[in-house]
Design a protein around this nucleic acid. Structure first.
Length: 558
RNA sequence: UGACCGAUGGUGUAAUGGUAACACAGGAGAUUUUGGUUCUCUUAUUCAGGGUUCGAAUCCUUGUCGGUCAACCA
């Protein structure tokens, strides 16, 4: 494709804003974004969208991105989360210009608050939380002024200092901005900007007992760092006028806030609160349970950073609510894994069928060479052992097959992947009528790669050598929830958990998997990766995602 | 029913007053030693009414529907 015919990719609305600002020389042609997680939980795919957006924008337009922890609430925050967040951002493939903390600015923020008081734009309120809430009014009725609203500047200054000095207990007083109790924007009704919390902070320790609220920390932090584009999700739209109001009254660097629609995925919850609940109530094994939409979960599941970045690219960025089909994520994962995954043969059925090749000499074995990845011939090949007795999937045999069943059936011929064509001659059953063995004959001239038999078969199936098969544990995951749209679902979200989201099977793998590492395609089955629960004598694989299966889909339709 | 935000195939995202397109999903076929991959073809879209205009998904207006906002959370 030439440069001229190459399609120009259209810009999303944020790229347009950035291009415009850069063109007009705003902020001196500088671009600085930030990714501002609160260290009170693990990152999930929704954060991945935000990370790709913030870091991606900076990358594309020659800017930079800060990683800033929004750590203004010491009660819920912890260094455990700081560490996991940093690891997740790096894993996704991004490097920040600076690692910063809102708590770095506590002293500066305190001065900002005093400045507001001095302008008569903030006051200390002794009301209880309940009183403040009831004075707030409702979206359709104006609020009432607090009885403490008209304190003098001097008194406010003294009380605020007292708050800082630890003279008052938690909850006894707050600092409020003095704006407009009748504003149609609830956030303008004298928002609380500082509260007392005698709590240990993960970074500042016991240095502070007053902590700024989000609205008095986030925009100011952006401004201190001279963030040019502060990108957040839609629910912060009503905060924007407040964000601008503080910057104007404080007369500090004018960062600007822009909002985009958060990611929603079908069959998934994407809220830190709900994910935390799943972990704490034991519905999953932890934040990194492979069924979780957390970055640590999908990583353990075998998703690659490339696939997630591709996904974030494909879902786009806009301002309308969305619900993305989880099938798109799976598409992205398959697309990447198809290119990189080593192919191996594993019989997943814990109760496989033994196939005896009756015309293959007893005791004889031979090594057959099989390609590691047809998509990447340079990945070379490996040997697998063939012998008189092999194991195949029970579902690859049918005694009375429908037409178009291309696998094993009485009188049918199939190709054993990388080996020979065999024909099924006899079905052996136990007293209950259950198939225990298939007696087949192989075609010696049909050896893979040097087939002179002239035979054409419709199906190829995978197999493992019975004598040397390696027992492994395989964890098959299904969607965590049974309903597509959790936001629309009735009742508690946990009522819709899928009881079959994890199935553990004991499978039979080709011996090459003994030294497993990385990502595999189990031929005809899906993509799998070694789980961290594995030990040298007990290998455990996670199914990342299944292969597309048009046969199964056709069967389902009928 | 106060303010704010939004509405384009099944799902997302484009089209920036000039032929409604791309991806996923769906369907049909070809290729294939994975019923995978790849390739070809294909179904399906502007919330409604009114207005401006030679021309409207786009601008104006009214309405409808959806979302957000009343934490000493972020």
């Amino acid at each position: 494709m030439t440069e001229e015919t190459k399609e120009v990719k259209s810009l999303n609305f944020l790229e347009e804003i950035v291009e415009n600002d850069l063109r007009e020389g705003k902020s001196g042609g500088r671009l600085l974004t930030r990714f501002p997680p609160e260290p009170n939980g693990y990152l999930h795919l929704g954060h991945a969208k935000s990370i790709c957006l913030n870091f991606g924008l900076a990358q594309k337009y020659g800017g930079q991105t800060n990683l800033r922890f929004d750590d203004t609430n010491p009660i819920t925050e912890d260094t455990e989360y700081v560490d996991s967040i940093k690891a997740d951002v790096r894993w996704l493939g991004f490097e920040w210009a600076a690692e910063l903390y809102a708590s770095d600015y506590f002293a500066q923020l305190y001065e900002f608050a005093k400045k507001l008081i001095q302008q008569g734009l903030a006051y200390v309120d002794d009301s209880t939380a309940e009183a403040i809430a009831s004075q707030k009014g409702t979206p359709t009725e104006p609020g009432q002024d607090s009885p403490f609203r008209s304190r003098s500047i001097e008194e406010n200054l003294a009380l605020f200092e007292g708050m800082k000095d630890g003279k008052y207990p938690d909850g006894s007083r707050v600092l409020r901005a003095k704006i407009d109790m009748a504003s149609p924007n609830m956030h303008f009704r004298d928002p609380v900007i500082y509260r007392i919390k005698h709590a240990h902070h993960h970074r500042t320790g016991d240095q502070w007992c007053i902590y700024p609220m989000y609205d008095f920390a986030h925009g100011q932090s952006d401004s201190i760092e001279q963030i040019t584009h502060s990108i957040c999700t839609l629910e912060f739209i009503p905060h924007r006028p407040l964000y601008d109001w503080f910057i104007q009254k404080l007369d500090i660097f004018p960062s600007h806030q822009y909002e985009f629609a958060r990611l929603n995925l079908t069959y998934t919850v994407m809220s830190k609160r709900k994910l935390k609940q799943l972990v704490e109530e034991g519905h999953v094994a932890g934040w990194d349970d492979p069924r979780m939409p957390t970055l640590s979960g999908v990583r353990r599941r075998g998703y690659t950073p490339e696939a997630i970045r591709d996904f974030c690219e494909r879902i786009g960025v806009a301002k309308r609510d969305n619900l993305i089909d989880v099938g798109l994520l799976e598409f992205c994962v398959r697309e990447h894994l198809n290119k990189i995954a080593t192919r191996v043969m594993v019989v997943l059925d814990p109760d496989p069928i033994k196939v005896v090749i009756t015309n293959y000499p007893e005791g004889q074995t031979e090594e057959l060479s099989i390609e590691n990845n047809p998509e990447q011939p340079e990945e070379g090949s490996r040997n697998v052992t063939f012998s008189r007795e092999i194991l195949v999937e029970r579902e690859d045999f049918m005694e009375n097959p429908p037409k178009k069943f291309f696998r094993l059936a009485p009188g049918n011929r199939v190709r054993l992947k990388g080996a020979y064509i065999i024909e099924c001659n006899e079905v052996i059953k136990d007293s209950d009528g259950k198939v225990t063995e298939l007696h087949c004959t192989y075609v010696p001239e049909s050896k893979s790669g040097s087939d002179t038999s002239g035979l054409k078969v419709q199906g190829t199936i995978h197999w493992v050598n019975a004598a040397t098969a390696l027992p492994v544990e395989v964890r098959l995951y299904d969607r965590l929830f049974q309903v597509e749209d959790l936001n629309e679902a009735e009742g508690d979200f946990k009522d819709h958990l899928n009881p079959n989201s994890l199935e553990i099977v004991h499978a039979f793998a080709e011996p090459s998997l003994k030294e497993a590492s990385g990502t595999y395609q189990f031929l005809r089955k899906g993509y799998f990766c070694l789980d961290s629960d594995s030990s040298s004598d007990r290998l455990i694989f996670n199914r990342t995602v299944g292969l597309k299966d048009s046969w199964a889909k056709d069967q389902k339709k009928k």
